[in-house]
Amino acid sequence: MSDDHASSLISAEVRHVEALLESRGLLGAGEIDTRIDEFLAGGTPANGARIVAHAWTDPGFAARLLADANEAIREVGLSMAGGLQEQRLKVVANTAEEHNVVVCTLCSCYPIALLGPSPSWYKSEAYRSRVVRDPRGVLAEFGLELPAATRISVWDASAESRYMVVPRRPAGTDGLTEPELAGLVTRKGLIGTAAV
């Protein structure tokens, strides 16, 4: 069976269930499309990059961010209230001594309302099974070779909080504006599988 054929079979099954739910009043006409559009127009890694760039340039904000991220991100016009309910955000910052990396070993918890959809590798058993046990090896596979002296702290999103990493500010970026700094930050940096 080709992938296309399998995909068209499951497409038909999904449409069938949607039609059934519409007929029973459990789904509004157009509700699915609206939800998809809202989701795709929602969170984005650019939100996280903005937060990080602001934390790099404003130590007071950085301190507030680590102490109470939900309150602090309101200062830059963002919130964790975009999903089904406001979720607690826990922000952790990398230092010269310690590198943080985030995983959800039990499912795929991720700050979607803030950062948008997670990458497929984040949801894979390959990542989830190994990063808690051998983070140094997993990070090396991502091309991130940490000095042996750097402590690694893995965070398992096993309950209700969602997590974001503040990477270290790269050297030689003193002259950059906040938007330019934000442009350096990647989604992997916000998860902890890249340096920035």
Partner: peptide, 12 residues
């Protein structure tokens, strides 16, 4: 699956 062995390589 946290800590389990035997899953394939991570694919980006």
């Amino acid at each position: 699956v946290g800590g389990m062995s035997g899953f394939p390589a991570i694919i980006e």
